Structure formats: structure tokens, C-alpha cells
Amino acid sequence: MSLNKLEVKYFSSQKKLNHFLHQQDQEQMYLILENESIIKKTAELKVILFNFEDIYKYVEDMVNILAVGFLKVNPNVVSIKFNDRAFSIDFSDELKLNEPEDFKIFSAIKDLINFGIRETFLKPYYAVIIYEPYLEKLKDKFIGYVLKIKDQVIETKKDIELMPMPQLVRNEIHKILSAFPNIMTRSVDTNENRRILIRYKETKIKNG
């Protein structure tokens, strides 16, 4: 799916656009094509409208093209679920892959889908590959990344905010860093901007 397949409307002002969105039965998201208005020297807003189903269809199309095309697998072994801004692309455990070549393709598929969502819709939704052997390979890298951030916070004593991420990933980071008494974590902001703040915490030395 590309932007030219989505609904386009024109509004004379931001107020008229907001009024239109308020009247819709389901949540509508939009992109304003500012460049075109500037070039044509018009005060009208050219707006591309879409909803969550459009994003889901985009992910579904990308999975069929990339996963089925590159891995040569039957579409029946792939299912797509959505939870808290994360699309889990679930490959059946019956799937037999060659390591590590096919795992590299997994990473490429995930990166391409994430890039496509971000560039097309400007929304922080994430594609996550669910395939146990692949996840085991990623686990050590993920823990290493979190611990590296932890070391940086301890060394500088300055807060670090991570990028917005799904609740499943945030929970895992909270769990890993809870083992360190001089580190505290909390989730900040709301909805699609929800992210983790990692903060240095002074620890009191107990007198024996």
C-alpha cells in the first residue's frame, strides 16, 4: 500500500479539519501535504486520511511480499497480531529455517517493515518477529544493549530516555534493570509516545 491509495480531502483551515475528524465514527489519522500547498500557493490543506486498518493492511502486504517472497514460505505459517503499537509477525514453530542466513532475512524484513510504517504514516508502530529460535538469538543482544545504557547512566549520572516502544519491550527493560539498586526506571508520556526514562539513584551505604 502507498499513500496514493489512501483517501485525500481538502480543508480550508485546521479548524475545519478538526471538526471533520471529530464527526467520524472511528479514529482517523492524517498527514498534511504541506509542500504541495506551498508550491501551489494555496491556503487549502491537502490531507491524506487513514486509520488503523490501513496500517494493518500495509503490514500484511509487506509481510506477504517480503516474508513469503524471501523465505519462500506458505502464507499459512505466518500470522499477524497487534498489541500496544507492536505488530507481532508470528512464524509457526513448524517452520524450518537455515541459521544464520535466514535469521539475517528476518532482521531485514523487520527493519524494512518498520521503515515503511515510519516513512509512510509517520507513526511509531513496530513490527516484531516472533519465532522462538530467532528470538533466542536476539535475546543476548537486547540485554547487552540495555546494560550498556545502564552503564552510561551510572557513569554520567544523567537521565537517558529511550525511544517510544511497545509495553512488552518496556516491561522487559524494567525487569532487567530492577536488579541494579543504583538505577531506577519509569515509563513516561502516554499512548504512542510512551517510553522509558532511566535515572541514576544514589544508594545509601549501611553502617555495620
Rank of each mutant, 00 (worst) to 15 (best):
K46I: 02
L71W: 11
I160S: 14
N76T: 06
K57I: 13
E7N: 03
L135K: 01
E36N: 07
L197Q: 07
G208V: 07
L97T: 11
F121K: 08
I198V: 10
Y131S: 02
E36G: 05
L112F: 08
F103Q: 00
P100E: 06
D102S: 12
I143A: 09
T203D: 10
D159W: 09
N171T: 10
N74C: 11
I39V: 05
K81W: 05
D189S: 12
A179Q: 13
R195V: 01
H22A: 15
K123E: 15
M1Q: 08
K123D: 15
L95S: 14
A127T: 04
K139M: 14
T120L: 02
S88I: 00
L138M: 13
T203I: 12
P181F: 10
I205A: 10
E161Q: 14
K41E: 15
N207R: 08
K57P: 15
K139V: 11
P100R: 01
L49Q: 05
K81E: 04
D140F: 05
I48Y: 05
Q152F: 07
K141M: 10
Y58V: 10
I196G: 01
E34R: 02
E94R: 12
F106W: 00
N51I: 04
V59R: 10
D61Q: 11
E27N: 12
L197G: 06
L197M: 06
G116C: 14
S178G: 02
K72I: 02
V8A: 09
S12I: 09
L17Q: 00
V63S: 04
L95Q: 11
L122C: 10
G69V: 09
F20N: 10
L71N: 11
G69Q: 07
R170Q: 15
P166A: 05
L197I: 04
P166H: 03
I32A: 08
F106N: 03
L135P: 03
N35F: 03
I117M: 06
A179Y: 09
F87K: 00
I183M: 04
N35W: 07
D54S: 02
R118G: 06
I32Y: 00
L138W: 10
F50S: 01
E101V: 05
K150S: 11
K110Y: 04
N83W: 00
K104A: 03
V68G: 10
L6P: 01
I176E: 12
H174C: 07
H22P: 07
N64Y: 04
Y145E: 15
K201M: 08
N76H: 08
V68C: 13
I113V: 09
L147C: 10
V77P: 03
Y56R: 12
I117T: 06
N74Q: 07
L112T: 09
G116Y: 13
I117D: 05
Y131G: 02
I32L: 06
Q152P: 08
R195M: 03
P124S: 00
S107M: 03
L138F: 08
I129S: 01
T190A: 13
E192H: 14
E53F: 09
Y131Q: 03
F103V: 00
T185R: 05
P133V: 01
F52Y: 06
N74S: 12
I55M: 13
N193P: 01
N64T: 04
K57H: 15
L45W: 02
R199H: 15
D93I: 02
E132D: 12
D140N: 11
